[in-house]
Simulated assay, not measured.
Amino acid sequence: MIVAGFGCRSGADDAAMRAALAAHGRTVSALATLTHKARLVEPLANALALPLILIDPAAIRGVATPTQSAASLIAYGTGSVAEAVALTAAGRGARLIAARIISSDGRATCALAEGILA
């Protein structure tokens, strides 16, 4: 199962998230984001008819990621929200298959992880 994890700023829109996801060029089985960002990602999940997995911010603290954002480290204790959310949502044995891509407007990031959902 491939999960697209999203990190986003409060002003992120559907177009930014679609662009970040499309840049990966892969079909995904589910979308994931932090619980308090659900309203931003939910329209995309609905449009794609994919489940949206919500992750508590505490669950990504300390998740090792290959890319590093100072803002993510300070706010969430991980280098990339998108990568950490994708890994956490993908479950047991998850591995990152695509590092985060940042939308052209800088408001959304998307990373892909593959694993066995819990």
Results as ranks from 00 to 15, higher is better:
22 A>C: 00
110 C>F: 03
72 S>N: 13
67 T>E: 00
79 G>D: 01
7 G>H: 11
117 L>N: 01
92 R>A: 15
14 D>K: 14
97 I>W: 07
117 L>H: 13
98 A>H: 06
49 A>C: 12
59 A>M: 13
86 A>D: 10
54 L>G: 11
62 G>H: 03
71 A>M: 13
83 E>H: 01
30 A>W: 13
16 A>H: 07
59 A>T: 11
41 V>K: 01
3 V>A: 07
73 L>D: 04
57 P>C: 07
109 T>D: 03
68 Q>M: 12
2 I>A: 07
76 Y>R: 06
16 A>N: 06
51 P>R: 02
3 V>T: 15
86 A>Y: 04
17 M>V: 07
36 H>W: 14
63 V>T: 15
88 T>I: 10
70 A>M: 03
101 I>K: 11
98 A>Q: 03
20 A>V: 00
84 A>C: 09
67 T>D: 05
16 A>F: 06
111 A>K: 04
31 L>V: 01
94 A>M: 08
76 Y>E: 07
91 G>P: 14
23 A>H: 05
9 R>W: 10
52 L>E: 05
99 A>C: 10
44 L>A: 10
78 T>I: 07
60 I>L: 11
70 A>F: 04
42 E>P: 00
88 T>G: 00
49 A>D: 14
116 I>G: 00
74 I>W: 10
61 R>Y: 09
12 A>G: 07
27 T>A: 15
63 V>Q: 08
22 A>M: 00
72 S>Q: 02
64 A>T: 14
24 H>K: 05
90 A>D: 08
68 Q>S: 13
72 S>G: 02
66 P>I: 08
36 H>P: 01
13 D>V: 14
112 L>F: 02
48 L>C: 09
18 R>H: 09
113 A>H: 12
56 D>T: 13
49 A>I: 07
14 D>V: 15
28 V>L: 13
75 A>S: 14
61 R>F: 07
13 D>M: 09
81 V>L: 03
3 V>C: 04
44 L>M: 15
57 P>R: 12
18 R>G: 02
25 G>S: 10
78 T>P: 02
40 L>Y: 07
84 A>S: 14
103 S>C: 08
106 G>Q: 10
7 G>D: 12
80 S>I: 10
46 N>I: 12
117 L>S: 13
61 R>C: 09
12 A>K: 01
100 R>E: 05
19 A>R: 00
10 S>E: 10
